[in-house]
């Protein structure tokens, strides 16, 4: 459920925003290119013009659909791991009034050795998602599998939902769920990080130092490169890089926070692209 500010925008304004979302890119957009930048800038501009200001979701509970792909032996996720992952998400986003829930009875476990070892953009990913996904307008599809290319996870951005609804969601290396054994990345922060992307957040090191547009969030410290441990510092100029931020690349134990600005951006993205999450019954 979501609660909203009063004074909602006119139906014409909402219809126009939805049209723009629906007619989003039809092909892959691998980097925050000019189009992405324009779209997200439009969100901020729209806020200034009161569309978002009046309709912004101030709190939200997102329903997670866990879809676990296994090879019959590896990849199995226990109820305890799911509950701890949801707790990790709520600990991470909850202080910003973005919360997560799931229904144990709706969990999907699918044995398919080919899909289990999926790579990004592969036939295995497409087939698995087309077969197993829940309605992306109503659910966050949270896939777990064993990923090619040594990846811990990947995500889709909210502005891609219109063009590729079946591909929407996050894909996570199964052993990164809490207790999964992929130390030092097995405390659930990978899920949190990828959901950050799913809510429209960029990496804190996106595009490096100013004058680049960075991550388009004003209260994150820009830095020139990813940090991989808690002691790293790649800050632009003086100060420290945000090793504690979930949208950096540090180990799970370092990651503890989102900034207020990141939460505002995530809620803007929900308002514009994912508002139907809260209209389902």
């Amino acid at each position: 459920m979501a609660s909203k500010d009063s004074d909602a925008p006119s139906s014409r304004e909402v219809k126009e925003m939805r049209r723009k979302v629906r007619e989003g890119p039809k092909c892959g957009t691998p980097v925050p290119n000019k189009w992405m930048r324009q779209v997200t800038k439009k969100a901020r501009d729209a806020q200034d013009k009161t569309l978002l200001k009046n309709n912004r979701i101030v709190s939200a509970t997102i329903k997670v659909k866990f879809i676990h792909i296994t090879d019959g032996t590896d990849g199995k996720i226990t109820q305890d791991m799911r509950q701890k992952q949801i707790k990790e998400l709520n600990d991470s986003f909850g202080s910003h009034n973005i919360k997560f829930s799931y229904n144990e009875e709706q969990v999907v476990e699918k044995k398919n050795a080919n899909w289990f070892n999926m790579g990004y953009g592969s036939a295995a990913e497409r087939q698995a998602k087309r077969k197993l996904h829940a309605d992306p307008k109503k659910y966050l599809n949270f896939y777990t599998a064993n990923l090619e290319d040594d990846l811990l996870g990947w995500a889709t951005f909210p502005w891609e939902l219109g063009g590729h609804p079946d591909m929407d969601g996050v894909v996570i290396l199964y052993s990164t769920l809490p207790g999964g054994g992929a130390a030092p990345y097995d405390e659930g922060a990978t899920g949190t990080h990828e959901i950050g992307h799913w809510l429209g957040l960029y990496h804190t090191f996106q595009d490096g130092c100013p004058p680049s547009e960075g991550d388009e969030v004003a209260d994150t410290q820009p830095h020139r490169a990813p940090d991989y441990d808690c002691d790293s510092n790649t800050a632009c100029g003086s100060g420290s890089s945000p090793v504690e931020n979930f949208m950096n690349y540090t180990e799970d134990a370092c990651m503890t926070k989102f900034t207020k600005g990141q939460a505002v951006r995530a809620k803007e993205m929900i308002t514009i692209y994912r508002n139907q999450l809260f209209r389902s019954k």
Binding site: V31, P32, W154, A155, H197, P226
Partner: peptide, 28 residues
């Protein structure tokens, strides 16, 4: 095991492969 890192392979036969991840951690 690590979060994404830019990698490249330099082969004797003069081939070069650069691998990165995009803004949502997808490999390119």
């Amino acid at each position: 095991l690590t979060r994404p890192r830019e990698t490249f392979i330099i082969k004797r036969n003069r081939e070069f492969t650069l691998s990165k991840t995009d803004a949502a951690d997808r490999p390119v």
